[in-house]
Design a protein around this nucleic acid. Structure first.
Length: 228
DNA sequence: CCATTAAAGGTGC
DNA sequence: GCACCTTTAATGG
């Protein structure tokens, strides 16, 4: 009797392990100010990072020294830094004032002795993350840039869309910059695509929500492609 | 079709 | 007054 789960649409937190909050005494807590680095590139930590509040951003440093976004970690997200890989070039910074709790391998084992169910939660956190990036590689390989952004919007509609006076509303704070980072499109291109979708009266994006007027057009555009 | 660059317009602290 | 995001236009692969 397996359980069928819905995958994450956005690279954010993936699966919050809230129950780990009961065992914070086993780990060590620390606060970070906005902009402060939690993990520097190639730093060996040997601990699990558990986000208690705020938000961390995980990115890689490219060979030309630029930051490439990977995922965002909100409350109760678990980030594995128990193991270190050679030249990972991974940077974790607090994008808000944040509080985190670290667990070493020994501390984690003590927690698991108290609560075996948590092992499954941790596994599920890993599974969610792996599944997301599995899909992400397919997305990058199978679809054109503009199709990826349309598909993202369609997935958001399916998972978060609410029907409201003849339109579908997605309540979400998702700047163009973020969409650009997730889909791999240039931020200027993202802006142009939203301009097109608005002119075509397919959808409109505001600061806190995306309002879809024509779901069918959005869906069909994925295959047709966009002519600006 | 999309990235890049530059420049100007917005917003919020 | 500055940092950060968005838009628009131009150019080129």
């Amino acid at each position: 009797m397996g359980e069928v789960l819905r995958g994450c649409v956005l690279p954010d937190t993936f699966y919050p392990v809230e129950n780990l909050c009961d065992y914070l005494d086993f780990g060590s807590q620390r606060s970070y100010r906005k902009g402060e680095a939690v993990l520097l590139p190639d730093e060996v930590l040997g601990k699990i990072i558990f986000v208690l509040s705020g938000r961390l951003k995980v990115s890689t440093i490219t060979p030309d020294g630029r930051e490439k976004f990977i995922y965002s970690a909100g409350q109760y997200c678990l980030m594995d830094r128990l193991f270190s890989f050679e030249e990972d070039h991974i940077l974790i910074i607090a994008v808000e004032d944040s509080k985190v709790c670290f667990f070493t391998k020994e501390q984690l084992l003590m927690v698991f002795k108290q609560d075996e169910e948590l092992i499954i939660d941790v596994l599920r956190n890993f599974a969610s993350k792996v599944y997301y990036f599995l899909n992400q590689t397919n997305e990058l390989n199978l679809y054109s840039p503009s199709a990826r952004i349309l598909r993202l919007l369609y997935e958001l509609y399916k998972s978060k869309g609410k029907y409201k006076n003849n339109t579908w509303e997605i309540n979400i704070y998702l700047p163009n910059k973020g969409i650009s980072e997730i889909t791999g499109l240039h931020f200027v291109t993202v802006s142009k695509i939203f301009g097109y979708l608005k002119r075509q009266k397919i959808l409109k994006k505001t600061k806190t929500k995306i309002i879809i007027y024509d779901v069918e057009r959005l869906k069909s555009l994925i295959d047709e492609g966009i002519t600006y």
